[in-house]
Amino acid sequence: MPDGNVTIKREEAAVTSWVHLRWLGVSLLTVLVLFFVWWLLTSGIRVVKPLYFPTPASVWETFYRMHQRIWAHAFATLIRVVVSWLIGSLWGVVVGLLMVRSRLIRSILSPIIEGLRPVPPVALIPLVIIWFGIGDSGKIFLSSLACFMVLVVNTVVSAKNVNPVYIQAARSLGASETNIYLTVVLPAIVPELLSGFRIGIALAFAITVAAEFMGAEYGIGYLIMQASRTLNTEVVVIGTFIIGIEASVLERLLKTGSDYITRWTFASVRTQGTPIQQRRYVRAWAHGARANLVY
């Protein structure tokens, strides 16, 4: 049984939680310093006028006054982003796999995809507003199109790079051609797909908010644009914060999910080391010493 550096691993597990907490503390300190600088510049020595950047107190006061409206807008944007991301990404993977599988489908779709891909999705917003109006459907269409493009290319490139020995092995174990795509190609490219999903969700956010800027009845982008027209800087700042928070929460969730799904890869901490080391690691994890070693 290979059991080389067990002692080192064990020490690591014990030390990890402290090391992790320490670095988390440093990051927390950065946030506090930023808040202090904000306060100092706007309220303390007042070198920045409230019109350019509001004071922390007035932001909090505005948020408290209109938080119900803000949540409604935040929720509208979040739904658009998540829905369009799901639709676009899943279609992207399916179409990508079909393109790898069939020469005909590849020949039909490549000119469309290659022609559309270099166009920045934001440039299509005016056209989409003419087609769909300023409701949900246009924004969802555009964001999902962007996610689709990312995932199609991602799927085709990574599927072509799957180690042929896995495909041969599957074939000699009795897998049919379609089965090979579902049981070998798809799982093998999951790590690449997940990075595509993460790029996709950031893109979906950017495009949804941009589309809301240009015409909407609801959404954080709409809220920010309205506030900026009336020079209501507090609401602009709150809107920006909300986007940041929503995006990073989604990103975190996706990260946690993909950590679990890709636990078989070498990069994953969840299953690092040999079986014996692994059991130690799980035990350490059970005792609360688990830490995000890898970001």
Partner: peptide
């Protein structure tokens, strides 16, 4: 059944 020279165990 084929056992290849290279590692062909499915890592996932």
């Amino acid at each position: 059944a084929v056992v290849f020279q290279r590692d062909s165990v499915f890592p996932w």
